[in-house]
């Protein structure tokens, strides 16, 4: 019985290790980071569309998430992570790394500016979303590839 429990624990631990390893791959890390940005954007959009009431704390937290996430986002494109794990990263990222980083920094900078002058109502959040969305798509225009 004990041996069995031990083996089970070892097997589970082994599974856990594998899972951590996969999630640690840069492709997976950056996909998670983009998801975080998407969720924060979704929270802002709910307010902009009037589906959720304006809440300064949520606006602040969402903008902070976006700004912090895109600060580290471009660090997860090391050589060797160009393909695999259904990455939608374009090879152009590695050809134009400086420009890619500049585009991430532009989004981060705009999110920080908005944090400093927090949008004060639904319309303000809508306008902010317009600015941020443009930053997102200007990078996706050059550096994100759709695979299906």
């Amino acid at each position: 019985m004990r041996v069995r429990a031990f083996m089970l624990a070892a097997a589970l631990a082994g599974l856990g290790v594998t899972a951590v390893t996969a999630a640690d791959e840069p492709q997976a890390v950056r996909q998670q980071l983009m998801k975080k940005v998407g969720q924060a954007t979704g929270a802002l959009s709910g307010i902009a569309k009037g589906e959720k009431p304006y809440d300064a704390e949520i606006v602040k937290a969402s903008l902070a998430t976006i700004s912090e996430t895109v600060k580290v986002f471009p660090n997860h494109f090391p050589a060797g992570s160009e393909t695999g794990m259904e990455t939608e990263a374009s090879p152009k990222i590695w050809e134009n790394m400086e420009d890619f980083k500049a585009k991430a920094a532009k989004l981060g900078g705009d999110a920080e500016k908005l944090l400093a002058e927090l949008p004060a109502d639904q319309a303000g959040v809508g306008a902010a979303l317009g600015v941020l969305g443009k930053d997102c798509s200007s990078c996706h225009e050059s550096y994100r590839l759709k695979k299906d």
Binding site: G38, T41, S45, G133, C136, S137, H140, E141, L145, K146
Partner: peptide, 19 residues
């Protein structure tokens, strides 16, 4: 209208211009 997908990804590639 906005370039956002339902899960708040955005438009990309040559569709950016089209959108």
């Amino acid at each position: 209208e906005t370039g956002f997908t339902p899960d708040f990804d955005t438009v990309g590639g040559s569709m950016v211009d089209v959108q």
